[in-house]
Nucleic acid binder design. Structure first.
Lengths: 253, 253
DNA sequence: CGAGAGCTTGAGGCATCTCAACGGTTGTGG
DNA sequence: CCACAACCGTTGAGATGCCTCAAGCTCTCG
């Protein structure tokens, strides 16, 4: 039961699980597999569709356009679930791959349903995590739509840092980051070339330095102001007042 | 029970509801309110957070950046739910407003929980709709990140047309569209000025015409090819094979 | 030792933005 | 009923942020 640490760590800021709940999680999600770096992930590996829960390492989802352009939709780190929406819906054009060597749990629609059914508190935590995920997508949208290149990079790095800190993978003044410049560029809607120049600007401005697989945040406040960064959409403290979805003891007319 | 038609129409492509289920829907979601055009919607109207289900009319969610720029996140038409993720999560910076006069249902976290609990098939349909919604956000992301202005407009219009058709609000060769050019521009990450020129190009190319509150699709295939439009992410036919979330009769180890 | 990938820099081009202006429509208040 | 404000749609001219093309260097891997 030493696996599934990442998901529990992430959801723990929402609620702690007891041993029965941990058992359910382990039974349903506990099939970790080792993947090499730069390996494609198949959302249709079996007859049914499946999603991936990241236990360790980095992965991402992306789409290739007809003209060959690539748009990275999201990066998955420990505790993240990739392909959740593909689980619900046939959608052949969204692809996924690992960045680094990674340990992933393959989730099926059935295992998901079982968890939602039998462990209401986990279900609520997963929905909370889904809402957070959607908040990130909104922010990503704004990045691409209305922020300049420097703002995008600053915002992206601050968000990534906070996400890593939420699963104890960040450092005091930076974080390990295996993402290549072409990969980040395709997430931010930029050219790798322009991203490179933007990173240089941020370095010269004394705001942040990226290199050697590490991102060093030199001036958090400066970056936050530049990016208009407001982290409430990742807020861990908020717990909904109302009964969370999935508590199935009561009957309602 | 003549209200809530829009949601049922939208979800009907996923599954049909019986009279008991319709009763639950009406009891929990059936509090329609009339709103004027251009009216702000408050996600914190009551002590608890609330979302809005669109019954009739058009609305949208957006965010204002520190520099005054606006990014429209999504447009809501009949059957759409705005602020779902805000229901889960405190997030003060996302705003919403009506475009036209509109009839909206105010949804609370509690009413949502009650539906999820007591009507599994509706819960499954709502999750399906949520997945579709997320698919749209992915496509929106790609619009902003990797498509040219003409491609964005073409893609946006085709998607909107299909969404309207899904709730029987579209026409054979176009649709009524109350969105102003500044509004669409802020959704697509463009200037209103440039959007205007882009629309002219599309008109001259014989692909589509927008004017007088109507969008006329002149060459659907041409637009689809230009935009790289693939509508599978809105596919209505797909129904997941596995047991949907929320069926709570069985117990799982 | 060669191939492939990433990082970096230079020079030129273009898609889109900014600033500016005008006419039409709608709503509003005196 | 008129005057005015606010918003929208449209067009022009100039500026610029980002892209494209091109090249060289480094590192890793087979």
């Amino acid at each position: 039961m030493h696996t599934l640490n990442a998901l529990q760590r992430k959801l723990s800021s929402h609620s702690q699980f007891d041993s029965a709940e941990r058992k359910i999680l382990a039974a349903q999600f506990g099939r970790p597999q080792v993947f090499a770096a730069r390996q494609e992930l198949d959302f249709e590996k079996y007859s049914d569709r499946n999603a991936y829960l990241v236990e360790e390492g980095w992965a991402y989802t992306y789409k290739i356009l007809p003209n060959g352009n690539r748009q990275v939709v999201e990066f998955g780190i420990a505790g993240d679930i990739l392909g959740f929406c593909e689980l619900q819906m046939r959608r052949g054009d969204l692809l996924a791959a690992t960045v680094t060597p990674a340990i992933l749990h393959e989730l099926t629609a059935g295992s998901f349903a079982a968890v939602m059914r039998s462990a209401p508190r986990i279900a609520a935590a997963l929905l909370w995590s889904g809402a957070q995920h959607q908040g990130m997508m909104v922010e990503h949208l704004i990045d691409l739509g209305r922020r300049s290149a420097t703002q995008r990079v600053a915002h992206f790095m601050l968000e990534l840092w906070q996400r890593l800190n939420m699963v104890s993978l960040g450092g005091k003044d930076g974080f390990k980051c295996p993402l290549s410049q072409p990969l980040i560029a395709d997430a931010l809607g930029l050219t790798a070339i322009h991203l490179n120049r933007t990173l240089r600007e941020l370095r010269i401005a004394g705001l942040m330095v990226m290199g050697d697989g590490f991102v060093e945040i030199r001036d958090e406040k400066g970056l936050a102001q530049l990016a208009g960064y407001d982290s409430t959409y990742l807020d861990q403290a908020f717990i909904p007042k109302a009964v969370p979805y999935g508590t199935h003891q009561a009957k309602v007319a």
